[in-house]
């Protein structure tokens, strides 16, 4: 598939187009252009490096939502072996905006749950653009309880614009579905490692993200409301999304500075979609490492630490 470029990547796109053209030419002409191609490729890498060196938060948000960014189901077969998807909340439906199942990470049995966006239009509609409904969160909770019963550490991959706001969601009590997951995850008796791989959209993300270790891919975002939503409320115009993205501290590096994120996983030059295999390797190493650190703890101590971690969230003064 041809690489898609974002607006701010246009200079890179032009250079890449030129390289492609030259390569094409090289195939049927007998002049030697290899030298020129490798010169341009080096230039393209340098240009990418300089553009990516100082990305604004809004540009990071654009990469986090890149249509070619790897999604949960792209990672799962690469990160795990023996994945078997488990479906349904046993009450109402199977929400395909959330996927989950049992698998092995480095040979070790685990439960994995993640939100899933769609790649093409048909799949996007089927997956509701990665926006779970209450039955999705209830399926996730069912799998978490299953994990607890069989002592499988839980790994969650977060990638959602948010929980779905619709009439049916309200009828089936979206609020309660999210709240119940927060309540149960706070005391789930197995290690929980969460990683934001794309968009961490508000309560819909947090509902599978109460954890012992929070990881974020370098160009993922995690926020209380989308930049557009914040801009339309506080600036009265969704066009101010760049300002909102800046003001809310949504990027991995900034959240690390607030000590809300435990580890930022570096992405390949140009973002995860430029080299998914390299991303998988870094993500897998981080998951294995973090899991080994908390998996050794007796469950009492694990929960004590999780409670202390949750208790400490917040910045306030004392009058």
């Amino acid at each position: 598939m041809a690489m898609q470029f974002l607006d701010f990547e246009q200079p890179i796109a032009e250079l890449e187009a030129k390289i492609d053209e030259l390569k094409h030419l090289g195939a049927d002409a007998d002049i030697n252009i290899e030298e020129e191609v490798s010169r341009l490729e080096a230039k393209s890498r340098a240009l990418t490096r300089s553009i990516f060196k100082s990305l604004t938060p809004w540009r990071v948000a654009q990469i986090a939502r890149h249509p070619q960014r790897p999604y949960t189901l792209d990672y799962i077969p690469q990160l795990f072996t023996e994945f078997q998807e488990l479906h349904g909340d046993r009450m109402y439906a199977d929400d395909s905006a959330i996927v989950g199942g049992i698998a092995r990470l480095d040979g070790k049995p685990v439960m994995v749950i993640g939100q899933q966006k769609g790649r093409d239009t048909k799949e996007r509609v089927r997956r509701n653009y990665g926006m779970p409904k209450p039955e999705g969160y209830r399926k996730a909770l069912r799998l978490m309880k299953l994990a607890e019963r069989f002592q499988l550490p839980l790994i969650t991959l977060i990638d959602t614009p948010g929980a779905y706001p619709g009439v049916g969601s309200e009828e089936r009590n979206q609020s309660e579905a999210i709240a119940r997951n927060l309540f149960e995850m706070s005391s789930l008796g197995v290690p929980v490692i969460s990683c934001v791989i794309g968009e961490g959209g508000s309560g819909g993300a947090l509902a599978i993200g109460v954890c012992d270790r929070l990881l974020m891919l370098q160009y993922s975002i995690y926020s209380v409301i989308s930049p557009e939503g914040c801009a339309s409320i506080l600036w009265k115009s969704a066009d101010k999304r760049e300002l909102a993205a800046e003001a809310m501290w949504i990027t991995a590096d900034r959240l690390r500075r607030l000590r809300l994120v435990d580890e930022v996983i570096r992405e390949p030059l140009g973002g995860a979609h430029r080299d998914p295999q390299a991303t998988v390797e870094m993500l897998k190493a981080a998951l294995v490492q973090n899991l080994s650190e908390v998996d050794a703890l007796p469950v009492g101590e694990l929960l004590e630490r999780r409670h202390a971690r949750l208790r400490a969230f917040g910045v306030y003064g004392q009058a």
């Binding site: 999210i178 709240a179 927060l182 309540f183 995850m185 706070s186 005391s187 508000s202 309560g203 947090l206 109460v210 995690y222 926020s223 209380v224 409301i225 914040c230 409320i233 506080l234 809310m248 501290w249 949504i250 959240l255 607030l258 809300l260 409670h307 949750l310 208790r311 969230f313 917040g314 910045v315």
Partner: peptide
């Protein structure tokens, strides 16, 4: 509260815990 960013979101987890 949007003005405290992710810190506000995490209060949902803190209060539920």
């Amino acid at each position: 509260r949007m003005q405290e960013g992710l810190l506000s979101l995490l209060q949902m987890a803190k209060t539920s815990a």
